[in-house]
Amino acid sequence: MRQLEDISYKHEGGRWTLPLLLAAFIAIMVLAFMVGRYPVDPITLVKILLSKILPIEADWAPQAESVVFRIRGPRILTGALIGAGLALAGLSYQSVFQNPMVSPDVLGATSGAAMGSALGLLWGWSYTETTILSFALGLAAVGLTLLIAHHVPSQPVLGMVLSGMMIGSLMNSCLSFVKLVADTEDVLPQITYYLIGSLNSVREGDLLACAIVVGLCSVLTYCLRWPLNVLSQGDEEAHSLGIPVKAIRLTSIISATLMSAMATAVAGTIGWVGLVVPHLTRMIVGCDHRRSIPASILIGSGFLVFVDTLSRSLTTSEIPIGILTSFIGAPFFIYLVIREGRRT
């Protein structure tokens, strides 16, 4: 027994992989708090953070505390949650659709949320109202996809993917129409900037909303770690092994949709994270969801926080994060595809 467990860990990437990923994530978080137009040295950063729980005398500039808690804090933590949510949504979608090429937009959640934000901007709604509309339309798009797929009972996966493509395409057409009628001086640039994806406008309320949605959905997805493993054997085999296939698939889809719609509502369309991170995760810790779920959360959040740190520190004017995730994600994905192709 002991021997088999050890072999299993060895095959899946080693028992120290997850602690090392956690250490890397913490290092990136510390770096993100330190780097920026107003640099904060590590000792001061630790003191500022500890001052909230320990009686430490404030020997730092008040601006440093404001930068850590008010400016960078919400942005970095929200970025970490969005990265975790997108990565986990991608992993879930790929597992339930038994296809490693699936991204979080497969059922139209991202397109629906983007359409919602564009509408909110067009109608001049407040930031909170726009975010809520975006989230709601993201969920509505997936709801519509599932409703259509319900009429294709013999090919459930194919039905969902094709319906998702159709709804996504429909939402993109609606988005084009909104852009067409938007005021070119004011609203259109806002929509365009939003669609690129950025954490620039993140607020404290977003942090709370993301923490609730991503937190709950992560716990739910982790609870389904074993059925998700079995589901990869195919619907018929999973069913014969005692897995309630429809219920597991629907629960995972709802959870992944909530996370990807929330991410898009808050930060716009940030591409590649939900596609590349699950691949990278499987490369490091293997396919087993008992390890790939926590690993994808750590890698996704660390990756997005790292890229966001680059986006706000590389140049004097901030580069929208969606551009950088594409610059990094696309070549990396090509590398992964070539690597896998050579191996098989």
């Binding site: 299993s8 095959h11 490693p100 990869s232 054997q233 195919g234 293997g286 396919c287 087993d288």
Partner: peptide, 9 residues
């Protein structure tokens, strides 16, 4: 299977 697991898993 779409994703390959170890024999033990």
């Amino acid at each position: 299977p779409s994703f390959s697991y170890s024999v033990l898993t």
